Amino acid sequence: MSDDLFSFSSSSPSSSTTPLVSGKPMAPEEEESVFSLRPGSFSDYVGQRETVETLQIAIEAAKKREEPIEHVLFHGPPGLGKTTLAHIIANEMGGELTITSGPALEKGGDLVGLLTNLQQGDILFIDEIHRIPKAVEEFLYPAMEDFSIDIVFDKGVHARSHRFRLNRFILIGATTRIGLLSAPLRDRFGMFRTLDFYDTEDLIRIARRSAALLNTPLTPEGARALALRSRGTPRILNRLLKRVRDYADVRADGVLTDEVVEKALALEGVDCLGLTNLDRAFLKTIIDYYRGGPVGIEAIAATLQEETDTLVDVVEPYLLKIGFLARTSSGRKVSQDASRHLGYAVQGRLF
């Protein structure tokens, strides 16, 4: 094989049919597939250098003191590595990792059951932690501060409270909407890190590593083409890689070149900047129906017949990042660059 190709032997997980860009939790089969590509240590982790260094220092210091690290809160758009970092922290600390999500904790008993089963040094990871019901959230306050929970028996004049001691555990929270997290809960985290979109060079490294694990030959040009279309997000890059791999196996010779990447992703509706059909529909709606804006997000969602949360959490962060969209006090506005990219004549109202 040519030295220009990156290819190594490994088992190949099955391809996923999950949408390329999604704000919904991953299905179990996709979670298993992604796990096979997920780095298990900081040495294999690419990007987020300041966050990684901060965590490494905290973990090394905690090991010297023979105690768990402080509770950690990760904030950032979906797919940037919040769950991966939780797995790595568990591996580095030698504790068991328990994963749940805010919407899954409907009653206080759901959370109490998880907390009472944690052993010394175990990690509880709560995704979408901002969506925990208020009544359930209040159980976390004493658990995070004093490693105990107060359980009330009976009601009325016969009510009595019992404090149950917990093993010292580490809570890792992840959220895409930090503004929706209550101040009492946010203030109980010892470490707060914001994850940002990845640059092209880091994404190329991730593409090479994932292609190696998938036993898929990838040229340097193909790796860069994938990186440029992955919206700065490793999860999306891995999804694109699997779609292109399928295309290469059927329509090409199995090698992922830049030409193969371009043709494969054109079928998926992904353009040279990583914009999907939903991204383009979002921008075109503002231009066609609202003269480039400003317009409220509820109006855009109603026109597109999409959930507002999907647009805010999944579509908007990347468009804001590349300067195609602006949020103002009066609503969303489309930029001149976005208008040019979509083939519109630049309008005076666009910024």
Results as ranks from 00 to 15, higher is better:
residue 2 S to I: 07
residue 6 F to M: 02
residue 6 F to T: 02
residue 9 S to M: 09
residue 9 S to E: 15
residue 12 S to R: 15
residue 19 P to Y: 05
residue 21 V to I: 11
residue 21 V to S: 12
residue 21 V to M: 08
residue 22 S to K: 03
residue 25 P to T: 00
residue 26 M to K: 02
residue 29 E to G: 08
residue 37 L to Q: 03
residue 38 R to T: 01
residue 38 R to N: 01
residue 40 G to V: 15
residue 42 F to Y: 14
residue 44 D to S: 05
residue 45 Y to G: 01
residue 49 R to L: 15
residue 55 L to T: 10
residue 55 L to G: 09
residue 57 I to P: 05
residue 57 I to N: 06
residue 61 A to N: 10
residue 61 A to C: 01
residue 61 A to D: 04
residue 65 R to W: 01
residue 65 R to F: 04
residue 66 E to V: 14
residue 66 E to D: 10
residue 66 E to M: 13
residue 67 E to I: 09
residue 68 P to K: 04
residue 69 I to A: 10
residue 77 P to K: 07
residue 82 K to S: 08
residue 83 T to P: 09
residue 83 T to I: 13
residue 87 H to A: 14
residue 89 I to F: 11
residue 93 M to A: 14
residue 94 G to C: 15
residue 95 G to R: 00
residue 96 E to A: 10
residue 98 T to I: 12
residue 101 S to P: 13
residue 106 E to R: 14
residue 107 K to Q: 11
residue 108 G to E: 02
residue 110 D to N: 11
residue 111 L to A: 10
residue 118 L to T: 05
residue 119 Q to L: 13
residue 128 E to A: 03
residue 133 P to A: 06
residue 134 K to S: 05
residue 139 F to Y: 06
residue 143 A to V: 06
residue 145 E to P: 12
residue 148 S to C: 12
residue 150 D to R: 11
residue 151 I to N: 08
residue 158 H to F: 09
residue 158 H to Q: 00
residue 159 A to W: 03
residue 160 R to G: 09
residue 170 I to Q: 05
residue 172 I to E: 13
residue 176 T to V: 14
residue 177 R to M: 09
residue 178 I to F: 09
residue 180 L to D: 15
residue 181 L to A: 13
residue 187 D to W: 00
residue 189 F to T: 08
residue 190 G to C: 02
residue 191 M to I: 08
residue 192 F to Y: 13
residue 192 F to A: 13
residue 196 D to Q: 10
residue 200 T to Q: 10
residue 202 D to T: 07
residue 205 R to Q: 05
residue 206 I to Q: 15
residue 209 R to E: 14
residue 211 A to W: 07
residue 212 A to L: 15
residue 213 L to C: 12
residue 214 L to Y: 07
residue 217 P to A: 05
residue 218 L to A: 11
residue 221 E to H: 12
residue 221 E to Q: 09
residue 222 G to R: 02
residue 223 A to C: 06
residue 226 L to A: 06
residue 229 R to Q: 03
residue 229 R to P: 05
residue 230 S to Y: 12
residue 230 S to D: 06
residue 231 R to P: 00
residue 232 G to T: 08
residue 234 P to G: 11
residue 234 P to S: 10
residue 239 R to W: 03
residue 240 L to K: 01
residue 242 K to E: 14
residue 243 R to T: 10
residue 245 R to N: 08
residue 245 R to S: 06
residue 247 Y to T: 01
residue 251 R to W: 07
residue 253 D to Y: 04
residue 255 V to W: 03
residue 262 E to P: 04
residue 262 E to G: 02
residue 263 K to F: 11
residue 265 L to K: 01
residue 268 E to H: 01
residue 270 V to H: 02
residue 272 C to D: 01
residue 272 C to F: 02
residue 275 L to P: 06
residue 278 L to K: 02
residue 280 R to A: 05
residue 281 A to Q: 07
residue 284 K to H: 04
residue 290 Y to C: 04
residue 291 R to T: 05
residue 291 R to S: 11
residue 291 R to N: 10
residue 293 G to A: 12
residue 295 V to D: 07
residue 306 E to T: 12
residue 307 E to R: 13
residue 318 Y to T: 07
residue 318 Y to K: 00
residue 319 L to Y: 02
residue 322 I to N: 01
residue 323 G to T: 11
residue 327 R to F: 11
residue 329 S to K: 02
residue 333 K to D: 08
residue 334 V to E: 11
residue 335 S to P: 02
residue 339 S to P: 03
residue 341 H to T: 01
residue 342 L to C: 03
residue 342 L to I: 07
residue 345 A to C: 08
residue 345 A to R: 03
residue 346 V to N: 06
residue 348 G to N: 01
residue 350 L to R: 08
